[in-house]
Amino acid sequence: MALLVVENLSVGYQTQNGYLHAVEGVSFSLDAGKSLGFVGESGCGKTTLGMAVMRLLPSNGLIREGRILFDGEDLLTKTDEEMRQIRWQEIAMIFQAAMNALNPVHRVIDQITEAIYTHTPSHNKNEAHEQVRALFKFVGLPEDRMRDYPHQYSGGMKQRAIIAMALACKPKLIIADEPTTALDVIVQDQILEETKSLQREFGVSIIYISHDISIVADICHDIGVMYAGQLVEYGAREEVFDNPSHPYTKALLSSYPTLTGEKSQLMPIPGEAPNLINPPFGCRFSDRCTEASVSCKSNPSVWLEITPTHKVLCHQCGKHCGE
């Protein structure tokens, strides 16, 4: 049974220069206990997607169409108060620590217990503290640092505290938005291990957002590749890795070192992502695509099913497969 189903979601921002189509027609589903990773360059809409699921878009953001079904209920029809109850209790977020996600004037423990009290007001102080102690133990933070302020923590410690905070209400789904960016490689590795173990132990579903396809591949069962506001390839990790079909996915994979450490030529992708205020009518990657033909630019791309679990949004692939 799918925990989260997103159907044909389109999100945009009203800006000074016009309406910006940040996310266009994205659909995916995530089963309980599974994890799904979204990769793409900055500005491709992956963060907007995560925020839209939480309904935490900035005031100029607007969900134009689509449905977000969580546990079978459409989040977009919920009232603000109902949504407030769902946040953190059902869906939590792991923010990037470098983002100043912890309030500098409150103690770390208070910021975590605050989430517990908000959603389970029946908890008394001792229970809440006991819970935080267990969480600290799980994420590997020393207990005696619970009463510290965020500025007394290192970057890695802050990230662990944020993970502990995300687990505070035992949510069914955690959205992790670039949690390891700006951490050094060793700490990054530890945090990734933690993310994997929390999935094993808590059986929580994870949406993992990153610009680094190797990290996503390390953690997630399914991978969605995003480009210019659209999902361009979606499938199980192995399928996307072994048989990358969209030219952009191929380029992404070749612009990072592979997981196995195989030496291959790192290929930068030439060109820039299109302007999302006036997105091109045809395939959005066509300007940078080495395989693009004239019809790519003149016709909107269509989804092509390669296997039942592997889809790609590309004209050219259709031709290849049709042959």
Binding site: N100, N103, H106, T118
Partner: peptide, 24 residues
């Protein structure tokens, strides 16, 4: 960003305003 965290935590707007934004 910590205001966003507060919203994500499901805190009410009043708590966010008085307890998280105002002291800073």
């Amino acid at each position: 960003d910590y205001i966003l965290t507060g919203r994500a935590k499901g805190l009410s707007e009043k708590v966010i305003r008085d307890h998280h934004a105002a002291p800073n």
